[in-house]
Nucleic acid binder design. Structure first.
Lengths: 111, 111
DNA sequence: TTTAGTACCTTGCGATACAAGGTATAAATA
DNA sequence: TATTTATACCTTGTATCGCAAGGTACTAAA
């Protein structure tokens, strides 16, 4: 056990990076909300439904994503999200912004 | 001009990293609010007063920081903040958490 | 027909970043 | 001497957003 709640620290660090993660994952493959949660959980970037659904809706409203319904062989239909051209354009800028933040922090941390 | 507001993207990316930045800077030298803002601005991590003052107060209340007043030769007295042992302990954990987030994102982005 | 599994979504709360505005001290300028 | 400029502190109100909790609905198995 730590003096601090490390999970909470990581959660804090993740803030503001979630949108980038979602677009990155969808840039590789279309996915539905539950599978995104599973994938992020595996990568130790825990996200819960109450966070993800509104985020996906926001990104869809910004035309960064589109969606389509697909039948599932086991359970209710799935809402598959796909990244749009506009989403890819933003993703590219996010790559640069992220690089920038990482480099800046490396500088601040060691200087 | 970009299709997107890049500054806003960076602001988004910075969220959750600010506490880490503050502790990192104070780990090197004691500083007062205005000098912190100047240093972060130089590093292109723009922070405004309305963000920084409450953050410093929170960190002080968590005993991550202490402060002392010092006279200035040109202007009102300055409130110098210093990192505490507890602050350094948290900083160490933040280093690990940050590394983790950076690595995870690198994985997600390229996979 | 009830339970378990999967998938969708919303509401209410708390935390926090930012814009804007306010107070106070000291030095320079009119 | 009065005003302006520069520096430094701080607070209030608003908006955003992540999370906990709870709710709906479809399918298959018990």
């Amino acid at each position: 056990m730590n003096e601090f709640n490390t999970d909470n620290i990581k959660a804090q660090m993740r803030k503001g990076v979630l949108e980038y993660c979602i677009l990155s994952i969808l840039d590789k493959n279309d996915a539905y909300a539950s599978s995104l949660i599973a994938e992020l959980k595996e990568a130790k970037m825990i996200v819960v439904e109450g966070t993800l659904y509104p985020l996906l809706t926001r990104q869809k409203n910004q035309e960064l994503l589109t969606y389509r319904w697909e039948e599932s062989s086991q359970g209710p239909p799935r809402k598959y999200y796909a990244i749009t051209e506009k989403g890819r354009a933003l993703l590219k800028e996010m790559d640069a912004a992220w690089q920038d933040v990482v480099e800046t922090l490396a500088l601040i941390r060691k200087k």
